[in-house]
Design a protein around this nucleic acid. Structure first.
Lengths: 349, 349
DNA sequence: CTGAAAGCGCTTACAG
DNA sequence: CTGAAAGCGCTTACAG
């Protein structure tokens, strides 16, 4: 016995209409080699029968699955939802399905995840690499989203420029001493951001960087960062390299009785879900995820289109840097009813 | 011209080894109809050539794609990462790939998303339905993850019981007046949670519910909820129906100079990424996502396995309720270095 | 404008 | 234990 799908296929439509399979195929795909009337009749009948083309059949014939892979370092990373949503959106607009793969753990798992996707026959993949991994040859086109400083990168937010935006904003508020708070000294994203902040300081300003990962190397994760002490030392601005750290800083300061933004300022990065919701809401810098995803997916689609480019094609060309956008919230004054402060996606089931 | 994949196929392995395609297929799939020696030789040669089986060919022949779909109401929902990760994990352990689809917007988009997945030939799908949607007949097995009160549901956390855990915890702390904070009166998840809280109160305790969606119906999203006023009225505990609302409450209270947990308590639901990181960290209730995902995926796999069950099979049987686990943090005392307070996934790129 | 035919890569009864 | 053959559903040159 050979297993078959539940629905009708081209052959059934063809016989029931007394035409050939090829004609049905042509009519449905709109290749235009069929007369208008017949196209009409065929389409109608196909719809009536609830015809759903078999991806397997098509894929086998064309060599294209119509699916791309999305490899993420860690789906639990709070940045993931936005990336995934943007990629899914861009991909489905381009007619692709999205297969996800989590490379949790080390670089080896990332390689595994990539291989699994290749085995599933993806036409290409978008990879957001783990820190300090290089994507070596993969058996399909790959678009890498990382920092501009990553070799082989395809597109990314301009984290450096984002950092400058923060610095300029803090300068405008009159801050002199800034504590940059990162949680991973190895991260090129965080280093770019920190570098941008430093580069954007005015001569009179000075910054110091607190790397939480080093602070906590010997345990004690989740303990206070000693920010009240820093305030006594004269720091008036806390520029976290991610909104999660900003949130951590904000609540620690508040708990210590330090008023934000009256006494000190706190800024973040990424405009994550809670940024507009907390009191005071966070000033942050947002990536244009839709644009980044759009560029990555269309670069991928272009490469897939050129059928010559099958094997191990890194979609590089020229790295595109997408500007980040400053979102000022802490100094936005009193809340006025009628003004939408929440981001659109803000709701919980 | 007929397009072909880059790699070798069964035929090439067969010719180069002087055996038949069928034998290669049997050897590689371990169906055991081939002599041990030959199996060995074939496997070796296949590995040498870097043979990757064609999913398309296999799918066309077997009628199974080896891929399941995951339909989410809104990927931007902060609960998503955990669900997606758990499903991806369970699915890949069971040998399935996961195709994602976001049903953002209304119920109509959800139907579209489901159809897209069916068109891509998924063998089944896990659906986390939008509020108040019923999953009607789909052309493949479906496992629904929602509340126990949803008809046709397959598995879910026991939100009601989770609510009781919160109530018992607050009772133990001696609270008498509790403000429940929800953000969506329509959500059955939130209603179950609120119901559980009320059911768990001791006679002397009383609760009132604040629905943010109603409060903000006329605009003003993101404005303070007036919690300081509630404290004056005598409320000493704020039980949010999601960690996002808990965070909102916490920061609003802190900003008003009310000390948490000394003056009042704040609790949440879901143990989202920030819960252990903020000061004070949040007491919350966690779903066992791995278990829920495992049950959903294996129920799905079972149904797919029975080849009779192709069309529109809702995987129901008996609804499984997975207990939620209380995580007490706010009263956990001073931070001791060396103790891991952060959840494992807590890191940002 | 329409159709007959080949073939994508695989698996599975069936025959030897 | 091994192989020849059929067929899953589709698309695409090619012929008419």
């Amino acid at each position: 016995m050979t297993s078959s799908r539940p629905g009708p296929n081209l052959s059934r439509i063809a016989t029931s209409l007394g035409v050939s399979i090829a004609t049905v195929s042509n009519a449905l795909s709109g290749k235009g080699r069929v007369s208008g009337q017949l196209v009409e009749r065929i389409r109608e009948h196909a719809a009536e029968l609830g015809y759903v083309p078999s991806q397997a059949g098509r894929a086998l014939r064309t060599g294209r699955s119509g699916v791309i892979g999305l490899v993420l370092p860690d789906i639990a990373n709070p940045l993931f939802p936005k990336i995934a949503q943007a990629i899914e959106f861009a991909a489905s607009a381009a007619g692709y399905g999205v297969l996800i793969a989590d490379s949790r753990g080390d670089a080896a798992t990332q390689v595994e995840a990539i291989n699994r996707l290749v085995e599933r026959g993806v036409d290409g993949m978008v990879v957001i690499p783990r820190r300090a991994t290089r994507i070596s040859s993969v058996a399909c086109p790959v678009a890498v989203i990382d920092t501009p400083s990553t070799p082989g990168n395809t597109v990314s937010a301009d984290h450096w420029q984002g950092g400058r935006e923060i610095a300029v904003h803090l300068a405008g508020l009159g801050h002199q001493r800034i504590l940059i708070i990162g949680n991973n000294r190895e991260s090129s994203v965080q280093n770019d951001r920190a570098g941008g902040i430093r580069a954007g300081l005015r001569p009179a300003m000075q910054a110091e960087t607190l790397w939480i990962d080093e602070l906590e190397r010997d345990g004690g994760s989740g303990c206070p960062l000693g920010l009240a002490e820093r305030v006594k030392q004269g720091f008036t601005a806390f520029a976290a390299l991610s909104d999660l750290q900003a949130l951590r800083a904000l609540t620690e300061l508040q708990q210590a009785g330090i008023n934000v933004p009256a006494d000190v300022s706190v800024t973040g990065f990424d405009d994550l879900i809670w940024s507009p919701v907390v009191t005071p809401s966070l000033t942050t810098v947002r990536m244009d995820m839709d644009r980044i995803a759009g560029i990555a997916v269309s670069a991928l689609a272009d490469t897939i289109g050129k059928s010559s480019a099958r094997e191990g094609m890194l979609v590089t060309a020229e790295i595109e840097r997408v500007a980040m956008q400053l979102i000022v919230r802490q100094s936005s004054g009193p809340c006025e009813p009628g003004i939408k402060n929440l981001r659109d996606g803000e709701h919980v089931r």
